[in-house]
Structure formats: C-alpha cells, structure tokens
Design a protein around this nucleic acid. Structure first.
Length: 812
RNA sequence: GCGGUCGUGGCGGAACUGGCAGACGCGCAAGACUAAGGAUCUUGUGGGUAACUCCAUGCAGGUUCAAUUCCUGUCGACCGCACCA
C-alpha cells in the first residue's frame, strides 16, 4: 500500500468532514484530552513530539470510538527565550522566526494525522491571546496576588543581562558558561505561597503519577514547628523558626542571615564589630550561587558583639551572622543547637563555641551531633519527655508566656514573573510619578509588543529603550507616565491556556464561566515530567486563584496526568546536537508512513519509560501491517464454500478476538500501548491460522472478525484502517464505528489448563472442567496417574487451589 | 547529604490484587516455496545436561505452601531537591 497517498487521501477527507472538530452539541459526553503544547523552537518535529502526540492520539481516538466526544486541541507556546537568543545570534526577528517555525510545525502535525481540532488552535504570541494573559495579570493584581518587590535575580556579567532561572545551569549561564551573580532588582511576583496549603492537600484529589505528586509535595516543603522570640539587648526581638523546639534548652547561639534587617542596628550598638560585620556582609553578598548553595562549603560567620536573652533560661546568648542561614526562608534567623544539628555543630566547633547536650539517645550511647529524637535532659521542667511530647509541651508553654508558639512554614517561594526580555507578553502596568504603580485599564488591552526593538542585551529590558512603547499617559491623573519595561515569564502564558482552547476565538473574554465549567478540567493531560514543579504547579495555582475570583468553579486544572518517557539517542544518552545522536522522525515517516512510525513508537517502548532509540523493530511493524492488509484483501475475495455453524475452530477464533478486545480495552486506558499491540498481533496470528487451516469457513462469522480487526486497529493506525474499511466495501469513516465490545460468553471455556504442583514444584499440567468444585478438582488431580504415583505411601496434608491457574498439593 | 524510581534472555520488553517467569516482537538456527531471496510461510530458541532433572528476575538474607512481586541489608543506574533550621 502506498502509505503516502493513503495518508493524504484520508487527511483531506477528515478535513472536509470536520470529523476532528469538537461537536458542542455532544458536550455532555465530552472528554478533554490534552497534550502539552509545543514550543516552536526548531523547524521540524522531533522524536519527542511524536512520542508525546502519536500514542496520546491513539488514546483519544480510542475514547472517541467508545462514544466520548473528544476534544483534542493543539497550539504553540510561542513566546520565550530560545527565539530571542536565536535572534541575537542571527539577527532574525523573533516574531519572524517563530511564525516560520509554527508554519512548518503545523504542516508536520497535520501530516501526522492526529485528530487535533485545528479550529481551536492557540498561539500565545498573538495579540488575541496575550491580551488575555495580561488580563489575567490584572485580575491577580486586583486580588492582591501580584505585587512588586526588590529581589535578587540572576545576572550574567558577560552577556550583560538578567537570566531566567531556567537559563542558569549549575550556577552558570547556559549560553556563555560564566558564573552567574545575584543582583537586586525590583520585580513582579505572584503570590503562589498563599495557596501552599491547598496546593499540597489537593494533591490527594488528582489522579497523577505518585512521583510527580511527591515532587510537588517536596517543592512546597511544608514543615511544622515553632517560632521562638529572643529578646535582644537593643530592645528588638529576634524571632527564629525551628522544627525542634524540644532542643531549645540547648541553644548555644543565635544566627542571623547576613541580609537580616536587624544587622544594621546591631552594628550601631557595637561599633567595635562594625568592620568585621561589614566585611562579612560583603563577603556573603559576593558569594555566587555555586558556593552559597554547596552543602560541603565550610561554614563561615562572624560575631556581632550583641547578645540575646534565652526565653526560658534567661541566659545570655551570643548573636552571630552566618550565610548558612537563608534570609528567604522562615524568619531569616535560627537558634543554633550545636549538640543536635550538624550545621550548628560544625560552626560551633570551628568558632570554639560551647556544645550543650539536651537530648539523650534511647538505648545506646549518644554521639554528638545527635540529630534524631530522644529523651530530654538538662531541660528543666521538661526533662524526661520524648521528642513529640516535648515539642508540643514547649510550644504550648511558649505561647502561654508570650514568647512564641506553633508555626507552619513552606519552602515554596513566590513566583517571580518579571523578565528583562523582549519576546514575551508586556506587563500591563504603568509607572506614574504622581500616582505610583497604576494598572492599565482593561479596555486598553492588549499592551502591544512593538516590533522594532533593539533586543540585543545591554543590561536593561529591551523595551525600556523603545520610546514609543514606554511613553504613555497615566490612566489615573492623565499625566506623563511610563510603561513597565519587563515582559511576563512564559510560564504565565501556559498557566491558563487549557481554559482558552474551548473558546480560542472568543474576543470578548478570555473564556466564559459556563463553557469553562462544562469543558474543564482537562480529563487527561499528557506531557513530560520535567514540568512537575513549574508549569504543572503554576497551572494549579492559577486555577485556584481564578476559582477564588469567581471565574470558574473547579479546583484543579488536570484531573489525570500521564508522563510519557524519554526517547534517548541510540547511545543511551539524551539526544543533543552536540552529541550527534539525534534521531529524526522524518526519515522514517517518509519511508514507512506516519501510521507505521507511530505504531513502532507504541510497540517498541514502555510508554512511561521510554528508552534508547533502536529501529530494528520498525520493519517488523511494517510486516505486521502487510500481513493485515493481505488478510483483509483476501477476505474480500468471492467464496462459495461456507457453513453456518460454529465449529471449534471458529470458537477458538472468537475466543482470541474477545480476549484481545478485553485486554486492549483495559491496556489503552492505562497507556500500555505495547501490550495492546501484542494482543492485537496475537489476534492477527489467530486469524491467519484460522484462514490457513479452514478451506471452508463460516463466511459471515469471518467477515465480522475481519471488520472487528479493522475497528480494533483504527486508533493505532487511523489512515490504514480507513483504507482497509473502504476495501471491505464501506462508504463511511471507520472512526464513526464503535470500538468492539467484549462478548464475555465467548471467553468461557469448558476446560482450563491447570499447573499441578506437589510440594510447590510443578509436576504436571492438566485440563480440568471449569465447573468442578474444589473437592472434585482435588480428587481428579490425585487420580491422575503421574500424580498418583508421587502420592503413593504419602498423605496429602493440604491442597491449595488457585481458581483457573494452579493446584498445589502439600504431601508428607 | 535527603527523597524517589528502576535492575528480568543476545536485544526491546511482558507477568492483573504473591500463583506455570520470559507474553508480543527483534535477532538467531533449521526447513519449505524459489533461478535467486534482504519477500513469504513453517518449526525451534533463557542457561547447564546425553537424560532424569538442576540453575535462573543485580547480590545476600527473611516471610510464605508459593516471591520478579512483600520485608531487611547491600551494590549499581537514573531522576528530583539540595545549608529550608
């Protein structure tokens, strides 16, 4: 079969019949199947795209044949750094290169033959989309979920620009490998931390891979502990956070992060330490990410000269600065318990500070630092309590005396969304000298991204140098004002796109509440696991925020999530141009066609595992397809020899068919495409055997077997199946057929083969009638000559029967 | 360092809630049809052994009538987080 022309033929027919377009009339049976949209980076689809989209399309088609009204849209995550970097290198404008790439990728995606509903296409870089991304930002601002603050950003001194976190690889610039520095800049943040608890607890509600849920859980990083106040000699209070209030009697010193605001006051109170403090603060601020983040780095710090008062013992506690304490977590200050914390122990040992043991190991010698739970000692009234008891009792006591109390902290930080980059959605904010920060009125959206901009990096936002863009009037007072020169992180664009698809052309709203509630959440979302703590977390946050603002009624964007595995290069490494191990799908698609290529992707790998590319098997898939074609063509030949009853051969074939239907129906649901195809192959083998062995067939029965085969194959090889369906004399599309249902009757066998074990070793196999009771089975087995021989002179102590599988006789 | 996933033939990979390990396919071998076959079909194929049988799911133990599956330890690969108090 000439797959090229067959594919073209059916793609054209599908296009004409609008079979892939979602039919709103059937919305009550909707199933929203979504693949993560692509970034239009290169011109051609790579194996990863195919591996994501091909098998998922099979799932979608399968569900459609089961009667669901499937909505499977496709679009492009078109803003972002690669296009801009490419522009910096080549001078080709990001808009031009992106549009060109999209055009090519669209063609390739159409040639793939997936049932994407192209009427719902989205491109995030188009005005009719980013207008609503800006609208989203304004709603978050109104709700108090977007705010501005000074923060440290990644700064590449060689490129002279700010880098996104994703552009920093192991503390280095991904482009020039310079060590990235930290720089203070005023940035927009989204308050994802407001949703930390719900983002954590709602993980229980969603059908996602456990691994991904765990990654989000760790990323959110809830820790339950206690805040404790230390009165400082300056009259200020240092609040520390600890998960180990049970060790509070062992506090040897208090540590502030070098960025802590109290540092200035302490310095003023202790001029003799001013030089040392200044030096240390400078040292800490100059440390780059690699050094600062390394756990093996030697602890450093300096004494402030000041003391705090221990809230329970009233002892004087020295206050230190050290950069192993992070300003951005908790209160930016900790109580150091050298005896029971490895870091504090290392620091105390280095600076000759005392180490006070307050926890004793249960059953064994206590070796310091001892960081596990034990029994309290040297802790006044709390002596003898265990860890849990002590943590509770001490927290309660601290609350009573007003020196602290229980507290929950999260590791999750607010989401920094300002990018000093050109190719993104402009932040719809205006800076007015008189009124301050003023949001752009919604009626003025979109804030258009100008085309003529010098986007080569010079350390400032590219838009800042574009006067036409920057100059504006304040919507509040009408005076001269300037626009925010930054653009939004592209993850903002992709945090809500699934809401837009059902109404991609709506020019009045981003989406309507009614349709969003009907179409969403996404029923099955398929994409790579690398987005676990970025896109997938952001989308959950935005969904919850929109719900709280009353725009939608559901809590979670993606009900079920599946990650495809990664196809590696033939050498077992990740595909990369520099390694020269990139496999291009085009070569195979041209040679074998899109159906065979996707069949091979499904058959050759375990979908969620992926693995090294190997094309040995692709020919075998081509052979498999040939066999089916021959079988189908032969079945259409005129034959007069027929009979109407069901012989045992037909019963066997019927069994094989229904066995395959049952297994495939179960396995496709689990995204287990390789086993689904294995069952389909078994069925084809059974048909071949029947065809070869039976000159005289039950023609009517065989015809349904052939037609069911085509139906069963349709989601896996849609073009081929349409062609075969036509060959068997049908005028309609096979995609309008129902997926065959299991006839359970056909699966009932008169006799089942049992494995017979004696003392857990297999001794025989025998056929046993289905209907026998356990007693009868045992009697039958014991009477079987081979077994009876082994039983001679022994008694059967126990007989274990696993219905339909195995019998184990324990004798002695 | 912490957390997680995974180790099965020459290869890709199967094995539902513990129940006949190796489904399906590749490769390989033999045969058939052939002038020929890189086409097609048939048969065989975990390892050792002449055979009865024995040994096999990274390694070492344990639980069980029964372990690829559960538990403990250990080695290796991969992924995520990483001074989070």
């Amino acid at each position: 079969m000439d797959m090229k022309s067959v594919e073209k033929k059916w793609q054209t027919k599908w296009e004409k019949s609008k079979i892939n377009v979602f039919n709103k009339k059937n919305a009550d049976k909707k199933l929203y199947v979504l693949e993560m949209f692509s970034y239009p980076s290169g011109a051609n689809l790579h194996v990863g795209h195919w591996y994501n989209y091909g098998p998922t399309d099979t799932y979608a088609r399968f569900k459609k044949m089961q009667g669901f009204e499937v909505f499977q849209p496709m679009g492009f995550d078109a803003f972002g750094l690669p296009a801009e970097n490419y522009a910096i290198k080549t001078g080709i404008h990001p808009k031009d290169s992106t549009e060109k790439n999209i055009a090519t990728m669209e063609t390739q995606l159409r040639n793939m033959g997936a049932m994407f509903d192209w009427t719902a296409e989205i491109k995030t870089c188009e005005e009719n989309y980013y207008k609503w991304t800006q609208w989203l930002f304004l709603q978050l601002y109104k709700k108090g979920l977007a705010y501005r603050k000074e923060a440290l950003v990644n700064w590449c001194p060689d490129c002279g620009t700010v880098l996104a976190n994703e552009q920093v690889i192991d503390g280095q610039c991904e482009r020039c490998n310079s060590v990235v520095l930290r720089k203070d800049m005023t940035q927009w943040f989204l308050k994802i931390t407001d949703y930390a608890e719900e983002l954590l607890s709602d993980l229980n509600k969603i059908d996602w891979p456990e691994k991904t849920k765990l990654m989000q859980k760790n990323w959110i990083g809830k820790s339950t502990g206690c805040e404790i106040n230390f009165e400082c000699e300056t009259g200020d209070t240092i609040t520390v956070f600890t998960t180990r209030p049970d060790t509070v009697f062992g506090v040897n010193y208090v540590v502030l992060a070098p960025e802590h605001p109290l540092v200035e006051k302490l310095k003023a109170a202790h001029p003799e330490r001013a030089t040392a403090i200044d030096e240390y603060v400078r040292y800490a601020s100059e440390a780059n990410d690699i050094d600062r983040m390394s756990t093996s780095r030697e602890k450093t710090g300096t004494f402030t000269g000041a003391y705090a008062i221990h809230p329970l013992t009233n002892k004087q506690i020295p206050i230190y600065l050290a950069d192993y304490v992070l300003y951005s977590y908790g209160t930016g200050a900790v109580m150091a318990v050298a005896a029971h914390d490895e870091r504090d122990y290392a620091f105390a040992t280095k600076y000759g500070l005392p180490v006070t043991q307050v926890i004793q190991k249960v059953g064994g010698e206590t070796v310091l630092p001892f960081c596990e739970d034990g029994i309290l000692v040297n802790s006044g009234a709390f002596d003898g309590l265990s860890g849990d008891e002590a943590r509770d009792a001490i927290a309660v006591h601290l609350t009573k005396i007003g020196k602290g109390g229980k507290k929950v902290n999260y590791r999750l930080r607010d989401w920094s969304v300002s990018r000093q980059r050109y190719w993104g959605a402009p932040i719809p904010m205006i800076h007015c000298p008189a009124c301050g920060v003023v949001p752009v009125p919604e009626k003025d959206l979109p804030v258009k991204l100008p085309y003529d901009v010098e986007f080569r990096p010079n350390g400032k936002s590219p838009l800042a140098s574009n006067e036409g863009f920057m100059k504006c009037t304040c919507p509040n007072c009408g005076g001269k004002a300037t626009r925010d020169p930054d653009t939004l992180d592209t993850f903002v664009c992709s945090s809500w796109y699934f809401l837009r698809y059902p109404e991609a052309k709506n020019d009045k709203q981003p989406f309507s509440k009614e349709i969003a509630n009907k179409m969403c959440p996404v029923d099955v979302y398929v994409g790579g696991s690398e987005h676990a703590c970025m896109h997938l977390l952001y989308a959950r946050f935005i969904t919850k925020a929109l719900r709280d603002m009353g725009y939608i009624d559901f809590d979670e964007p993606f009900k079920r999530l599946v990650h495809q595995g990664i196809i590696l290069g033939p050498d077992g490494n990740r595909m990369s141009k520099s390694k020269g191990n990139v496999v291009s799908p085009d070569k195979y698609v041209n040679e074998y066609g899109s159906d065979i290529f996707r069949l091979y992707l499904m058959f050759g790998f375990s979908y969620t595992e992926g693995g090294p590319w190997n094309d040995d098997g692709i020919k075998s898939i081509a052979k498999f397809v040939d066999r089916i074609e021959r079988l189908v063509r032969k079945s259409t030949e005129k034959t007069t020899a027929s009979h109407n009853d069901k012989t045992s051969a037909e019963k066997q074939l019927d069994y094989a068919k229904n066995h395959a239907i049952k297994a495939i129906t179960r396995d496709v649901e689990l995204f287990s495409f390789n086993t689904s195809l294995a069952r389909l192959m078994e069925y084809v083998n059974a048909m071949q055997k029947y065809d070869a062995d039976n000159e005289v067939k039950n023609v009517a029965f065989y015809k349904t077997c052939v037609e069911d085969l085509i139906r069963m194959l349709t989601p896996f090889a849609p073009h081929l199946s349409e062609e075969l369906w036509e060959i068997t004399g049908h005028k309609s599309s096979v995609m309008e057929e129902s997926y065959p249902l299991v006839d359970e009757q056909a699966l009932i066998k008169d006799e089942i083969e049992y494995a017979v074990q004696v003392n857990s070793k297999i001794k025989a196999k025998m056929m046993i009638p289905e209907s026998l009771s356990d007693e009868d089975i045992q009697a039958t087995v014991c009477a079987y000559p081979e077994i009876a021989e082994l039983l001679e002179g022994k008694t059967v102590k126990k007989c274990i029967i696993v219905k339909g599988r195995l019998i184990n006789l324990i004798i002695g």
